[in-house]
């Protein structure tokens, strides 16, 4: 039992921090521009594939730097030459635009790299078990993922709260007109934030690719969950995104380990369920089976009882 808890904690932590890296960019972009960027997960995918190609040519480590930068540039270009023009037609147009960009990126990736899974691997230097507990290895690469995610969190927090750029960004989130009147180039700030947010998504792809697989569906499996993270955490709140990422990471990981169903719960309080009941399918579903929908349940509950999100300041 203890080993299951320890490994669920570790796995939840790795997964949660990966979610954070994706959602931090998304939540910044949303709070600043009011745009739900549907292309965010596609940029994550693009990062993984770019890093794969770079890793073949010059190695994993240059890819870790270059791929996110390239994705950041792609993101900045999308904002500068796409989103900015669409902006004047309102939020719906922006939403549809990012939706289109998501398809465009995913299809382009498949055109370039094909529909096969590509063999993007962690570097040799990190492919060893860091430690072994109860006979189960914990790969060094996962520890590396943890370290990168934590470093990014700290770096973002410092930039946003301690630097001049951060102050301008924070001001531009709530009072864009006043910031512009003070002589700051707000559109440039937007482009920069979109670029950095995209680069973070790219970085998440770069480090998640070797661990979770680099394949055509990788954007789809993470696409919707990041929206849950930013809503649960509170829109625009970096700390909220952090807490929500960990919460959802843990929730999904621990759910897998729980084999109890409603039937067991009823049995525990002395109610026996009939095998012929019309609801028997509902009673016998285990927590492990419904694990993947738990985050969405959480999303609904948050929207009902705390529309600002866990740490957010404004309503969704």
């Amino acid at each position: 039992m203890l080993e299951l808890i320890v490994f669920s904690l570790l796995n939840g932590l790795v997964y949660g921090l990966l979610l954070f890296m994706l959602s931090s960019g998304l939540t910044l972009i949303f709070s600043m521009m009011g745009v739900l960027n549907f292309a965010h997960a596609s940029l994550y995918m693009l990062g993984a594939y770019l890093a794969y190609t770079i890793s073949l040519k010059i190695g994993f480590w240059p890819g870790l730097i270059i791929a996110p930068l390239l994705v950041g540039v792609v993101g900045a270009l999308i904002e500068r030459y796409g989103l900015r023009n669409v902006h004047r037609y309102g939020h719906v147009a922006e939403l549809i635009f990012t939706f289109g960009v998501a398809f465009l990126i995913e299809e382009s990736v498949q055109l370039v790299w094909g529909r096969q899974n590509v063999d993007y691997r962690e570097p040799e230097i990190l492919s060893f078990p860091l430690f072994t507990l109860w006979g189960t290895d914990f790969p060094a690469y996962k520890a590396f993922m943890l370290a990168i995610s934590v470093a990014i969190f700290i770096a973002l927090l410092l930039v946003l709260t301690r630097s001049r750029v951060g102050l301008i960004i924070q001001a531009a989130i709530t009072h864009p007109n006043q910031v512009a009147m003070l002589g700051h180039n707000v559109p440039l700030v937007f482009t920069g934030v979109f670029g950095v947010g995209s680069a973070l998504a790219g970085l998440a792809g770069v480090i998640a690719g070797p661990a979770l697989g680099t394949f055509p569906g990788m954007a789809a499996v993470l696409g919707s969950i990041v929206f849950v993270v930013i809503v649960v955490g509170g829109l625009g709140s970096l700390a909220g995104a952090f807490v929500a990422s960990l919460l959802i990471g843990m929730l999904q990981t621990f759910a897998v380990a729980v084999d109890y169903s409603l039937e067991d719960l009823f049995a525990a309080v002395g109610i026996t369920t009939s095998k012929t009941s019309a609801l028997i399918d509902l009673y016998t579903v285990t927590v492990a089976q419904i694990g993947p929908i738990l985050p969405y349940l959480l999303l609904v509950l948050i929207l009902i009882f705390r529309p600002t999100g866990l740490l957010g300041k404004r309503e969704v």
Binding site: F7, S8, N11, A257, Q289
Partner: peptide
Amino acid sequence: AGNELHPIGKVKDFSPYIAKIKA
């Protein structure tokens, strides 16, 4: 020891399942 069904095509990371099999 276990008879487990997971959602098709939706699991991002199988590590939790492996931990469970191991346990």
